[in-house]
């Protein structure tokens, strides 16, 4: 159970947060982190665009009115979201969408791109929020339940970064409470 470090990339591809939790990875210079963030952002965007679009199924018999919207929350493209919604069906369920009655948000753009990248020594997991912010977590390749860690980090981010009235959106994160809470929580898990 090793979490090496965390990187947060804003929706424009800028590095807004970089922090090491446990030693293991070699350090990069600040500039290299910026390049890493920008490069990953680009690659991620490309992987999004090459995601095959699944053909939309014809409306089912029950979907006769536009109000009977599908209960499926998964992305239209059929790729699994990094954190599958716990309360809903997952992507294996057939999407019974009344495609003719409405348009999708951002028609044609798949919801997710590159989600994980793995080497012998570490795994990079990417979670992109619906607002476009990306969380990159470097962990041990054998670590399980990364999504739990990711979800918790997202909550810390929502609480201590976004709710800090003096944090300017899209700017580098310098929130001491965010660091402190995340450190404390991660330490409690190991």
């Amino acid at each position: 159970m090793t979490v090496f470090s965390l990187i947060i990339i804003n929706k424009a591809g800028g590095l807004i947060y970089q922090r090491e939790f446990q030693p293991g990875l070699r350090k990069l210079s600040t500039n290299d982190y910026l390049v890493l963030a920008g490069t990953f952002h680009g690659v991620h965007a490309i992987t999004r665009t090459i995601t095959p679009k699944l053909p939309l199924l014809t409306p089912t018999a029950t979907a006769s009115t536009p109000t009977s919207a599908s209960s499926n929350l998964a992305s239209p493209s059929g790729t699994s979201t990094p954190i599958p919604p716990t309360t809903t069906t997952t992507t294996t369920t057939t999407t019974s969408v009344a495609a003719t009655t409405y348009t999708y948000p951002i028609p044609g753009v798949p919801a997710t791109g590159l989600e994980s990248l793995e080497t012998d020594k570490f795994r990079l997991t990417c979670f992109q929020t619906l607002t476009g912010t990306k969380f990159l977590l470097f962990t041990d390749p054998h670590m399980a339940n990364i999504e739990v860690v990711m979800k918790k980090i997202y909550e810390f981010y929502a609480d201590f970064v976004m709710k800090n009235p003096f944090y300017q959106l899209e700017m580098p994160v310098r929130c001491e409470a965010f660091d402190r809470n995340m450190n404390g929580w991660l330490r409690g898990r190991t």
Binding site: S70, L73, P85, Y104, A111, Y157, A158
Partner: peptide
């Protein structure tokens, strides 16, 4: 919105 998404864990709405 981030708090909403982090708490609710819902995905993108279909319409």
């Amino acid at each position: 919105i981030e708090d909403f998404l982090a708490k609710s864990n819902v995905g993108r709405c279909a319409n």
